[in-house]
Amino acid sequence: MSELIKLNPPLVDQDVTALTAGDKVLVSGTIYTGRDAAHKRIVETLAAGGEPPFPLQGAVIFYVGPSPPPPGRVIGAAGPTTSYRMDAYAPTLMAEGLKAMIGKGKRNPEVKQAMADYKAVYLAAIGGAGALMARCIKQAEVIAYPELGPEAVRRLVVEDMPLFVVNDVHGGDLYEQGRQAYART
């Protein structure tokens, strides 16, 4: 594990190519939320020649469906959702410039290949630590698909969101490496 690496989106190729699976990063700045339903709509919009709800070039997307904000809060609990459900859509978004995905759980081979091809990384947040993650979120605003409720696309302003690099552009995979290091079978 290296020292903490700071990332400030929008990201460029050099930001992500410098990362290695196992690195710890702190993300600060503007990121966007999206789960399956929002991804489906974004991909359909792109296919129809439309504009996505936020600029994809250099973007960081966080797979999250937050709980409602209690009074006086900008957001409720906001931990990552399982990422494989976005696998069908992720390569399309990377082709349009998406640079990082934040979630939890394994990605499929197509997504890993697209990360290498388009220079993008997959970052893991600690699943189930929703209250802790909420502390890093300073602003939240629904910018598209409000009818999707928790699945609406939100623009978040985050500060020092702690994440692990799981898949880098060089084929590194922290889930595989971590497991191999401790497997006793």
């Binding site: 939890k104 759980g105 893991a124 600690i126 699943g127 692990f164 922290l174 889930y175 490496q177 971590g178 497991r179 191999q180 290091a181 401790y182 497997a183 006793r184 079978t185």
Partner: peptide, 11 residues
């Protein structure tokens, strides 16, 4: 013994 560990990061 599988080594998956906390958050699946090994352990």
């Amino acid at each position: 013994t599988l080594g998956i560990g906390p958050a699946g990061l090994g352990g």
